Amino acid sequence: MSVPFVNASVQGDLSAPPDRIFGQIPASGLDGIAFLDFAYETAGFSTHRVGGLLVGTWHGGWYGLSRTTLTFSDGPTGNEPCDERTGEAFVLRGPGYAGRTLWSGPCRGRYLAFMPAAVERMIEAPLSHLRIDSITCDLTERMTVSHLLAALGQAASGHDSAADALLVDSVALAVLRASGALSSPPSRKSAALTARQARRVRDLVAERIDAPLSLGEMAAVAGLSEGYFVRAFKGTFGVTPYQYVLRERVTLAQSLIRSGTVSLSEAALRAGFPDARRMGRTFRKMIGRSPTEATRLQRA
């Protein structure tokens, strides 16, 4: 007996619910972008119909001396010609796609699903203007996408929807380009924010440092599309919007901790981190030290 599911613009049936869900971001909280990092311990199948856009990676495990085989079939019944992969695979599915996926043993999958409005928001054009071909290929041909989805999985790990909206937006835009769904714009050496745009973005980040902030909101104050804004922002500040916001949060948290007037938990919340644990993980990733170690060295 199969189990029906709906995830953003993707719906279908599963042979059974996943045995493990490592991370999940529902579309309801992030402008029509959903993410799921899941695993099965035994063979199974899924059918799916895509209304927007679906980008995913599959990582097959081992059972005995055999590696999991992944079989992808097109068509609403899954009876159309199939593509069989051993071990790992990348998939891209556009609007109107219907198909079936079978796995012969243990496997792990990561999927990013876009509602039509989410794609249109990023490209500032109707989804019908994009020519999206269904792609199934070896994961080695799309390793950038694999790394991006793995990073998103780590951010969503252990949380229902706590991943930073700015991170999700940034990863989603990069995935669209790296997957082949959205062609990268021609290189423009002059891509940069004007002084006024840069000031307005800095002011927005300072005002909203303790609250969720999306890529769309940052692009809006600069009066730019999200795609061009990311390039212009990096051309001006030398880092991505997400890296810039993280850096500002770390700087504020260090100042608060150094003052000795707040606890680590309060410093985390006032600097825009969900909790002290997540703040500590960000500190170690960005500066190689825990918050207290970094503050102690600054005082010395």
Rank of each mutant, 00 (worst) to 15 (best):
Y97M: 03
L54P: 12
G23N: 00
L102H: 13
E80P: 06
R247M: 09
A43V: 02
S128F: 10
R258C: 11
C137G: 08
A300V: 14
M218Y: 07
L102E: 11
C137N: 06
L269A: 10
D203K: 03
F273I: 00
S161H: 15
R277H: 05
I132A: 06
G87P: 05
A125K: 06
L269S: 09
M279K: 01
C137F: 09
G56K: 12
V262G: 00
M279E: 04
M115Y: 04
V6R: 13
R142K: 02
L193K: 00
D133L: 14
M286W: 06
E124L: 06
G99S: 00
N79Y: 08
R258S: 08
F72L: 07
D210L: 06
V119Y: 02
L252R: 15
R188D: 12
R49E: 14
D19N: 11
G235L: 07
G99A: 02
R49Y: 12
L252K: 13
A271V: 05
G44K: 03
V201Y: 07
V250I: 15
E120G: 01
L213T: 12
R93G: 09
L152V: 03
S66C: 09
G29E: 13
T68N: 02
P81A: 11
R299M: 14
Y244G: 06
G78K: 05
V175M: 07
E41A: 11
A195P: 04
A34I: 07
R20N: 14
V262S: 01
A16V: 07
A220P: 01
G23H: 02
I33P: 02
L204P: 01
D169H: 06
M279I: 04
I21S: 03
H59W: 07
A125W: 08
T194L: 06
S28D: 13
A34R: 04
Q154V: 15
D275F: 01
G12S: 11
L148W: 01
S190D: 08
I257T: 02
A232D: 01
D203M: 12
L246Y: 02
G60K: 00
R196P: 06
V175Y: 00
G223L: 07
S73W: 07
Q243H: 14
